[in-house]
Design a protein around this nucleic acid. Structure first.
Length: 502
RNA sequence: GGUCCUGUGGCCGAGUGGCUAGGCAGAGCUCUGCAAAAGCUUCUACAGCGGUUCGAAUCCGCUCGGGACCUCCA
């Protein structure tokens, strides 16, 4: 079996994955900012890194997966005017920041569960780690790489760059940016005048009187800058140097670049070895994002309640849709594409269900050597695809090539003994491992109601009798009415009947 | 303006030098009382121009188009 390779954004090449501590992996992924509801674009990193997490565990690693909740900062609730936050109202009328944060954290967790994402090992919040952030900022100040202005603290990028370039940690090492160019091209921003240089970034921001989230610090009341929380929390739970840091490509600069600079000052190391970045989900070729006003929230996606949606899409449809593309490619949203994913997933899952019902006899050798060879080649290539920087699209394509074989065995077009026992068992194993264990897919239509099943068996029996008497009016009535109730009957070749929930 | 990425058939997408990617949609056929499902067959491709090469979607150059980041951002 091949070994696992990741494309490392830091080195810009595919590298073999070797953990720092044998058999253990530390992984940090930038989590959501819980000031609003998650949208389709947010789903991608969390599904992508859930696959990474699952795959590493499948390979036998013990993984500590840390994904933060950003619940501190300059928050405003969606659609709510900022003057609402001014503290002249009665306490229950005022916007209580932790209430807002709780609401969107709950919604985020709901969405993660819908997607069947595993829970991370640790899910630290920024508000729960104010102390760690302050300690880290103090250290950066003490080392001379940050300065205080009016109760705010800024990181001195110029000085950092001058001193750390020689140590192989220049500012821009991750994003490929050249600091000298940055100085010319960075746009004008508010409170820019406080900074010595445009490229400097905030470690701590002094809170204006109406600002609702504030903590005491050595520099006055305020709140932490955006980048410091990830550095503080990854350092606390994964150490000064860990294996994998993940997130969306749009975080590469400035967020991850700044994380490297902060950690480099404190620990003299680039915090993570492998930097993995997923690409964006686009809509009409444009990144889905608040500023483009083209977001589809997850609740809207699942309910179909959005003007550009022609129907609702289930979480597994979305998951399958994302898996059919390589994580470093952009993925363009469209109703046609989602519908294709919906049908494709169903076809795949139906075949998988059939496959697992096969009673494979032991010790049978293949009677169709060509088919045997074809199938084993596909099966053995799956791991290579996955190891090649998580090419889930190719894994799925491989599995899809086996679907007609499974269906043909079921329909009797291909005899079960065309394939050897080993190959059939391997097929069962690989389908299960990839679809369920690694890709985290699940049946959304499954009904385990024993009573209902008994009733359906009875109805199927009655319909069978009607058909035997060529009473098609009755048999069609049963079928049509059940379909209206969401149960589709399928007459099978041998006279049997199967049904599924639609 | 700077840095970088990208352009594959009706749609979504793999693929980096020679082998049918795959899914969905379309067409035909088979099975079937009909339907659904399934199976088989099949139609649309590598933005354009030039170069390297025995051979390029794949490498190089130019032209045109799209996008990301440089500001909160998954």
């Amino acid at each position: 079996m091949s070994s696992l390779y990741f494309y490392n954004s830091l080195t810009r090449v595919k590298e073999e994955f070797k953990p720092i501590t044998p058999n253990h992996v530390g992984m940090y992924v930038c989590g959501p900012t819980v000031s609003g509801e998650s949208h389709l674009g947010h789903a991608r990193p969390f599904i992508t890194f859930d696959i990474v997490y699952r795959y590493l565990m499948q390979l036998g690693y013990k993984v500590r997966y840390v994904r933060n909740i950003t619940d501190a900062g300059h928050f405003e609730e969606e659609g709510r005017a900022s003057e609402d936050k001014i503290s002249s109202k009665a306490i229950l009328e005022k916007l209580e920041p932790m209430e807002l944060v709780q609401k969107y954290t709950n919604l985020f967790h709901w969405a993660m569960k819908e997607f069947n994402n595993l829970e991370p090992s640790i899910e630290p919040t920024a508000t729960g780690h104010i102390v760690e952030q302050i300690v880290m900022i103090e250290r950066i100040i003490a080392d001379g790489y940050a300065y205080i202005v009016n109760g705010s603290v800024y990181f001195d990028v110029d000085k950092y760059h001058a001193d750390f370039s020689a140590k192989g940690m220049k500012y821009g090492i991750l994003s490929g940016r050249i600091l000298e160019d940055q100085l010319e091209t960075t746009r004008e921003l508010e409170s820019q005048e406080e900074k010595r240089n445009k490229s400097d970034f905030a470690l701590w921001k002094s809170a204006a009187p109406e600002h609702i989230m504030r903590w005491k610090s050595p520099w006055g009341e305020g709140f932490p800058g955006w980048h410091i929380e990830c550095s503080a929390m990854s350092n606390k739970y994964l150490g000064a140097e860990f294996d994998i840091h993940g997130g969306g490509m749009d975080l590469q600069f400035p967020h991850h670049e700044c994380e490297i600079a902060q950690s480099a000052v404190c620990n003299h190391k680039i915090p993570a070895r492998y930097w993995l970045h997923n690409n964006m989900i686009t809509i009409n070729g444009r990144k889905m994002g608040k500023s483009y006003n083209n977001v589809i929230k997850l609740s809207e996606l699942f309910s179909g309640n959005h003007e550009i949606l022609t129907q609702a899409y289930t979480p597994m449809t979305v998951r399958f849709f994302i898996l059919q593309t390589h994580y470093r490619s952009t993925l363009d949203f469209g109703n046609e594409a989602l519908q294709a994913a919906e049908k494709g997933f169903r076809r795949m899952w139906d075949a998988y269900s059939l496959l697992m019902k096969f009673n494979v006899e032991k010790g049978v050798s293949a009677s169709d050597a060509a088919l045997e060879k074809q199938c084993t080649e596909i099966l053995h290539a799956l791991d290579d695809h996955m190891n090649d920087d998580l090419n889930t699209a190719k894994v799925l394509a491989g599995l899809f090539e086996l679907v007609p074989v499974i269906n043909s065995i079921k329909d009797g077009h291909i005899k079960m003994n065309a394939l050897s026992s080993e190959t059939l068992l391997l097929m069962q194993e690989k389908f299960k491992v990839y679809l369920v264990d690694i890709f985290g897919l699940k049946d959304e239509k499954k009904q385990d109601d024993q009573k209902l099943n008994s009733v359906l068996e009875l109805i199927a029996e009655i319909r069978k009798d009607a058909r035997a008497k060529k009473d098609f009016a009755t048999s069609d009535k049963i079928r049509d009415q059940l379909l209206k109730a969401g149960i589709q009957l399928k007459d099978e070749k041998g006279g049997g009947v199967s049904w599924e929930y639609v």
